[in-house]
Design a protein around this nucleic acid. Structure first.
Lengths: 353, 353
DNA sequence: CATCACGGTGGGAGCGCTCCCAACGTATCG
DNA sequence: CGATACGTTGGGAGCGCTCCCACCGTGATG
């Protein structure tokens, strides 16, 4: 008498026990074969593998998760509304990179949106339910409590970017400093003398580092930094326009502009055009992110590329390491020994400079 | 002596048993409260809820899945490489709709890409492992074996679109016939007399229905269908260009074009421009999908909109119903009684017609 | 020839939950 | 007042797996 209905027409799926019986071995042995333990004789292994194939056995994830206290799944947590996620190529590349790192493994990727307040509360529940072995946190803003919450829950996590220089959590960042320096260095190489800087919001760590890179390039060339040539934007096009207008008013003689993002560069471009400046003849323009915008702008925008796919891959690698380590019973690392990675950025020169 | 290390610094999470003890009740009672059973007295319920809150109890998903034989998770299976998924707004809207339908429930969404052959094999494994209660299959091509595979595995599934008129699986489609009819009807209303049709690949069910809708509109207006005015495209821009060139060569007197997708309409537009035809003065142009392209084209493209968000929501609703039904022990429905839904399309008139 | 080591193996004891049945009141009825 | 009913409740029996310990046989060792 079947107590519960087998699911669907596929019928009940075979269990470890049945495979063991079929192969004429014990449960433990089958388990060892399934999990690739070396402590099984060649002969027995073949026997078991045959039985597995005949029965079409697939281990039940829930049972495994319960017994082994791991899920073989990680979550990519996006603290943004879905819309933005899909709109930005950044995320697409991250997911791609994560997929590459996961391809070799049996680990499953879950996508979780935590845009609203309500979703965030649910996320905490979710992580508490031990549905995943760890999380990748992308697009984390400075001051966001989410990373700390995750950390407190004892869930392994890796961030993309950092919230500050001494980020407590494992993170993968790109070399914002180097990117900013390369951009301004390039403008100097091109013989530009009066270089204006439109920064991102300076309380965002990445934006500040970019700016510091710019200053370093100027310093290395023995140029003084003129505060009149610096304006802060907010990563929006509107912000870029405002900053550019300001700069142009203060220093009509500027012959180059570095903007901390392509979007802001797009705004700056509009203002420059409006003022009758030709790009790049009168004013050279360089952006940051190497987004689609960069290629589609007229003229095509020189920009600093971040290796986003690579970042996704590295984040995943770090996370898997972290998970493996904790599972090994070793205590979680202190803040000091947490993994951190900074990947190189690259200047892509196009027509605007 | 702890045999296994508690995970991370969060320490071991409380279990049902501990909640029961704290509340001074039995395990069964706590379970009933957690699952919202009505067979619990108000007093006891309050007791248990207090204990749950104090201990910060969250049920362990794996244990629940194992015992109850359900996972409270569904997968959105995308049989495409990741790139395309992110590139097309279609998917973004589907995900959005799915999210809406899931918001009320405790069901989790998993995103799975099955672009390559290898991924497909893994998907089968995955579904066999009973990781999800059901799947949403989007962007299924005619002749794709994936849906049948899923069905054979006994996993509840819902398709977006259909593979044929008598699709065996539950599906949510949009009214392609009505969309095609509306588009051509609109052109007739505008007084166009010589309407050319660029169809999608006619072995794709949706494309064929669109085309049939066009023919119906012409028939309703008492217009004969001139085979010279029909050309088959392949949903690409290049295909649209080729078809348009052909049509223009055969019938230079055409004064309107309906293309089975916005992308093909974009290709057609280039050829029309090249031939010196003004849109819409000389030739009216209508597309299909109402994608971003439509709004950004010059002139803005009249197009047929599908309610994609709604489709995502309805797919999810159907799937959840299907799952609930099967869990109830009722046998899976035969092909005849499977759920099917067709949502209305809508013509969005812009400047090109 | 007894002893030891070790690769290989079987199977008990859980993991934390749901399901269900038996048992407990207490209220209702004849 | 005993019998019946019903709303509640406790807890046993698993779900299918991993982990680990005990045990087997073999070959090497003293």
């Amino acid at each position: 008498m079947a107590v519960r209905e087998p699911r669907g027409r596929g019928g009940r799926r075979p269990t470890l026990e049945q495979v063991a019986e079929r192969a004429g071995v014990g449960r433990g042995t089958v388990s060892r074969v399934i999990n690739g333990s070396p402590r099984v004789s060649e002969h027995t292994r073949a026997l078991v593998e045959a039985a597995v194939a005949e029965l079409g056995y697939v281990p039940n994830t829930a049972a495994r998760a319960l017994a082994a206290n791991r899920t073989d799944a990680i979550a990519l947590v996006v603290p943004e509304p879905e819309r933005r996620f899909f709109a930005e190529p950044y995320f697409s590349d991250i997911v791609h990179g994560v997929g590459l790192a996961l391809a070799e493994t049996e680990v499953q990727l879950l996508l979780t949106f935590a845009g609203g307040d309500r979703e965030r509360r649910r996320l905490a529940q979710y992580l508490g339910a031990q549905r995943v072995d760890g999380v990748l946190l992308v697009s984390v803003h400075a001051g966001d409590p989410l990373p700390d919450l995750v950390d407190q829950l004892g869930v392994p996590a890796v961030l993309s970017g950092r919230r500050s220089a001494d980020e407590r959590l494992p993170s993968v960042d790109s070399d914002n400093f180097g990117g900013g320096r390369a951009a301004v260095g390039h403008l100097l190489d091109r013989g530009r003398r009066t270089i204006a800087l439109i920064t991102g919001p300076l309380d965002v760590y990445g934006a500040r580092r970019r700016h510091e890179g710019c200053l370093a390039a100027l310093a290395a060339a023995g140029r003084p930094v003129d505060p009149e040539l610096v304006a802060e934007g907010d990563f929006t096009e509107e912000g870029g326009r405002r900053a550019m207008a300001e700069l142009l008013a203060r220093r009509p003689d500027l012959d180059a502009v570095f903007a901390g993002s392509d979007v802001m560069a797009g705004g700056a471009r509009l203002v420059l055009r409006g003022a009758g400046r030709r790009i790049p003849q009168d004013v050279a323009l360089v952006g940051y992110d190497d987004s689609v915008i960069a290629r589609h702008l007229e003229p095509a925008l020189t920009s600093v590329r971040q290796p986003i796919v690579e970042m996704g891959r590295e984040m995943t690698r770090l996370l898997l390491e972290e998970i493996a380590e904790r599972a090994g019973g070793r205590p979680a690392r202190g803040a000091g020994e947490r993994r951190r990675l900074v990947l190189p950025t690259e200047l892509v020169v196009r027509d605007s400079s």
